[in-house]
Design a protein around this nucleic acid. Structure first.
Length: 288
DNA sequence: GTCCAGAGTA
DNA sequence: TACTCTGGAC
């Protein structure tokens, strides 16, 4: 039987992946051999604390490592711990977030810090189910935080890991779901040193993307990025930029500055207000 | 034009 | 399940 067919058969729904100990070891060794020579140093790897891991994992959601590096250093110097972050005004958090994109994350992060201070005495819980209840923390980030902060042998899939498993275990298969990938991740995790294992997996995935191209198009969850120029996302960013500069502006003033239809600006401000990124004070708009 | 250590919402 | 959300590097 062809290898692809074998693997396909192994991944029927609700079936536990059965890889032989030899297969698992060979796979792990390949990943670790690459990692030993090409480990990527990052500030959030080289000095580890629950807070640093938490901030970095949220920053790294859908955001390139190169974009995060400088932002992480500055953010940590301004907001060194959960208590400081929770006490700081949201406008200052957003000011140090801006440029990373997905500005909702700044709101989520600020709210999470408050919850961690109030409900958990400023100590990040080492429990993925508890972390997943925090705003902006889904299953992947909850697991990754526990892996990197507490060295727990959990399973998660992100873009680099997805690339590795598609390449090694799914041949030419298309429309592969993350649930299928997760069963392989779970079967191959290094229980002795989970944190290092996931660093290695991600570094290896980055290398694969450069050498064999983006395999994620074979993922069931692949979606092509819509264009940014002229998009709502771009105008939202410009609205926040204006509010960071001027503290408070009327809708009329925002429309004038943006040279966009008033209807569109109004709609985007309403969305930002619903997400509690901005707020109305009378006719004035300001950061929440 | 394509991508990125995904999550929230309906 | 499908859609929205950043913005700069390449």
């Amino acid at each position: 039987m062809k290898k692809e067919q074998e693997l396909k058969k192994r991944t029927r729904p609700n079936e536990v992946v059965k890889l032989s100990p030899q297969e698992i070891t060979a796979f792990q060794n390949k990943i670790y051999r690459y990692y030993m020579k090409h480990r990527r140093p990052f500030a959030w790897r080289d000095v580890i604390s629950p807070y640093r891991v938490f901030i970095s994992e949220v920053m790294l959601q859908q955001t390139q490592t190169t974009r995060v590096i400088d932002k992480f250093a500055l953010f940590l110097s301004v907001f060194p711990d959960f208590a400081t972050l929770a006490q700081s005004p949201f406008s200052e958090v957003l000011r140090h977030w801006k440029g990373l994109g997905y500005n909702r994350r700044a709101r989520f992060l600020h709210d999470s810090a408050a919850i961690i201070v109030e409900q958990f005495d400023g100590e990040l819980p080492a429990d993925p189910e508890i972390l997943e209840r925090l705003p902006g923390i889904g299953p992947a980030t909850a697991a990754s935080i526990c892996v990197f902060a507490f060295d727990m042998a959990l399973s998660f899939v992100e873009t680099n890991i997805r690339t590795v498993y598609l390449y090694h275990f799914f041949g030419d298969q298309e429309n592969v779901s993350d649930r299928e990938l997760l069963s392989f991740v779970s079967a191959t995790v290094d229980h002795e040193r989970p944190r290092e294992w996931y660093y290695a997996l991600m570094d290896y995935g980055v290398m694969l993307k450069k050498s064999v191209g983006n395999l994620n198009r074979k993922s069931r969850h692949y979606v092509k990025q819509s264009k940014f120029e002229g998009s709502d996302r771009q105008v939202r960013g410009r609205i926040l930029e204006l509010l960071l500069e001027h503290d408070s502006l009327s809708v009329t003033e925002l429309v004038a500055q943006l040279t966009e239809p008033a209807e569109r600006v109004q709609r985007l401000i309403d969305t930002l207000a619903a997400e509690q990124i901005v707020q109305y004070r009378g006719q004035q708009v300001l950061l929440a």
